[in-house]
């Protein structure tokens, strides 16, 4: 490690894959979008373009609107103002192209379901009302379970899984719908270090092999830094996007963690060290 308190602007990121196509029409566009509640907008005047195949890390202090932004992309929250289009379509038409992985705490592990039962639910909207899953749906479900490395647990009740395994089941459910876009809300929160690394490795391989567009909310920038193309930083109702070098500055990170932060470089990559918590 060298230095302390550096912004890391001059740090070169290792090239992981070819640059993404930024000229095509397939992009997620926020046009002057305001999100939140009528009495209290959370995010204001968002102008944003995310290109197909990009991986975006979303960071910001608690309550700044990270989950709200993801929910707006699957129609769970409607914009108070402005327009969101996904690959040229309105949200409601495009959401079958999206795999959404909510925070793990939302998973009701007391529900009587196995890993297979839960993952195949990701295909239900594609199958349509009144229709039963076909063999192709079952094959796709089994493949999604294999993709996240849970084949041996396919018939295990979800209540018997570890935290990391539950997180992977949520990802498998999103993958079973054959999405073009994957939205993940804190997928590495509250799991052990090994599970965190496995989840990030899985996401990285999905991103690179399938050209999935990924938007990932996280508090752990060190973990996701190697896989993201750009970082979206939110604070005070505003959204900023840029390269990791531009966004991972000490000032911004200290606001996120409410603590002293050192941004340094180790083994050719930015490394963030969180120190004492601010008081008062």
């Amino acid at each position: 490690m060298k230095g302390s308190g550096r912004s890391g602007r001059e740090t070169e990121r290792p090239t992981l894959r070819p640059p993404r196509e930024k000229e095509g029409t397939e992009r997620i566009v926020f046009e002057n979008v305001t999100l939140g509640y009528v009495e209290k907008p959370v995010l204001r005047d968002i102008e944003l373009e995310i290109f197909r195949g990009e991986a975006i890390g979303i960071i910001g202090p608690n309550g700044c609107g990270k989950s709200t932004l993801l929910k707006s992309l699957v129609g769970l929250i409607n914009p108070l103002r402005g327009r969101i289009t996904i690959f040229g379509q309105p949200v409601m038409s495009a959401r079958k192209r999206i795999g959404y992985v909510p925070q793990r705490e939302t998973l009701d592990i007391s529900y009587p379901a196995t890993v297979f039962d839960m993952v195949i639910m990701g295909r239900y909207a594609r199958i349509g009302l009144f229709r039963r899953p076909k063999e192709a749906d079952r094959r796709r479900t089994i493949q999604a379970i294999a993709d996240v490395g849970l084949t041996e647990q396919m018939h295990t009740p979800i209540a018997h899984l570890s935290g990391g395994q539950r997180q992977r089941v949520l990802i498998a459910r999103a993958l079973s719908a054959d999405p073009d876009i994957l939205l993940l809300d804190e997928p590495t929160a509250a799991v052990d270090v090994r599970a965190q690394r496995e989840i990030v490795a899985l996401l990285r391989s999905l991103h690179e092999e399938r050209n999935l567009t990924i938007l990932l909310v996280t508090h752990d920038v060190n973990l996701i830094y190697p896989m993201v193309d750009r970082i979206l930083y939110m604070a005070d109702g505003r959204v900023f996007i840029g390269s990791p070098g531009e966004m991972l500055t000490r000032e911004k990170l200290e606001r996120i963690y409410n603590a002293n932060v050192i941004v340094t470089e180790a083994e050719g990559r930015i490394c963030v060290i969180v120190g004492d918590v601010h008081h008062g």
Binding site: K71, V74, G75, L76, M92, R95, K96, I98, Y100, P102, T106, M121, G122, Y124, A125, R173, A177
Partner: peptide
């Protein structure tokens, strides 16, 4: 919520 997000 997930059922709604998936389009049901």
């Amino acid at each position: 919520e997930m059922a709604e997000a998936s389009g049901l």
